[in-house]
């Protein structure tokens, strides 16, 4: 077995273990993974189709795709940031330490994967068709994974020394949910503020999920490659910074 295969094997074992641990001793278990996105879906659908109609077609599918992608992003960033503390026991083993934030982000991706069939069911009920373009979803997921792990590894490194980092990030993620076009269309943003969405990689990733799921075509590959490249660069930066400092984590925790 090659070293890489062994690493993936170990990673899968740890992710499954984290996921089981998260819902251990809870009666509903992993069904809780659906509660937060579905309540958000219900509230936002009511508000933005009945109270203040936004005039977006197929709103539940539009909204739910945005919510589950954003939830993974947001939960992944937080759990990666706190992972050196939460998965402290892994740092006491002779393994590659970068596995710690990736295990956190990957176990959060399970929520996304579990919710995905529900999203497809909504799409079919709403009269949509499942196109071949859906095969592009894993590609978008890989890009999002790189983005979240990269940012998470950077924040995790800072969090070990300065515990305010988590609090600051929580504030920015709460803002980010409204600044990112999760429950509205990017073109509903006034001209002068569009740059906020243009510069936001999550805005592009959510748009890409929507294009392949709702419109059934591939996203603009040139634009997507820029986001993919940027996410890869952030992941590489996170890897380097985390790698540089993680050798001292055990001494600081």
């Amino acid at each position: 077995m090659s070293a890489l295969a062994a690493l993936i094997h170990l990673q899968a074992h740890l992710v499954a273990r984290e996921f089981r641990l998260r819902y251990r001793r809870s009666v509903l278990g992993w069904l809780w993974a659906f509660v937060q996105p579905l309540t958000r879906l219900a509230i936002f659908t009511f508000v933005f189709t009945r109270v203040i109609p936004l005039g977006i077609d197929n709103y539940p599918v539009f909204l739910f795709s945005g919510i589950i992608a954003w939830t993974w992003f947001s939960n992944g960033i937080i759990s990666a940031t706190t992972s050196p503390l939460a998965l402290r026991y892994l740092l006491f083993q002779p393994i590659r330490r970068f596995i710690v934030p990736t295990v956190s982000v990957a176990s959060d991706s399970i929520d996304f994967v579990l919710a995905f069939p529900i999203l497809l069911a909504f799409a079919v009920i709403a009269g949509g068709r499942l196109e071949w373009s859906l095969l592009f979803v894993p590609v978008i997921m890989v890009v999002q994974f790189a983005l979240v792990v990269g940012l998470g590894a950077l924040f995790a490194t800072a969090q070990v020394w300065v515990r305010d980092v988590q609090k600051v990030i929580e504030v920015f993620l709460a803002l980010g949910f409204y600044i990112t076009p999760v429950f509205y269309q990017p073109d509903q943003i006034p001209e002068g503020f569009r740059w906020m969405a243009e510069l936001n990689p999550m805005a592009h990733l959510i748009a890409a999920y929507r294009v392949v799921i709702i419109e059934g075509v591939l996203p603009d590959l040139a634009g997507f490659s820029v986001v993919a490249f940027l996410s890869g660069a952030i992941a590489a930066l996170g890897y380097l910074v985390y790698g540089r400092f993680s050798a001292s984590f055990v001494d600081e925790l």
Binding site: H9, L10, H13, L14, R17, L21, R24, R25, Y89, L90, F92, Q93, P94, I95
Partner: peptide
């Protein structure tokens, strides 16, 4: 240090062996 308090001895032993 390398063990998880909520998991059983058996589960911890599997993980610890894999980590080695």
């Amino acid at each position: 240090d390398g063990f998880h308090p909520l998991l059983t001895g058996r589960e911890n032993a599997v993980t610890a062996s894999m980590l080695s």
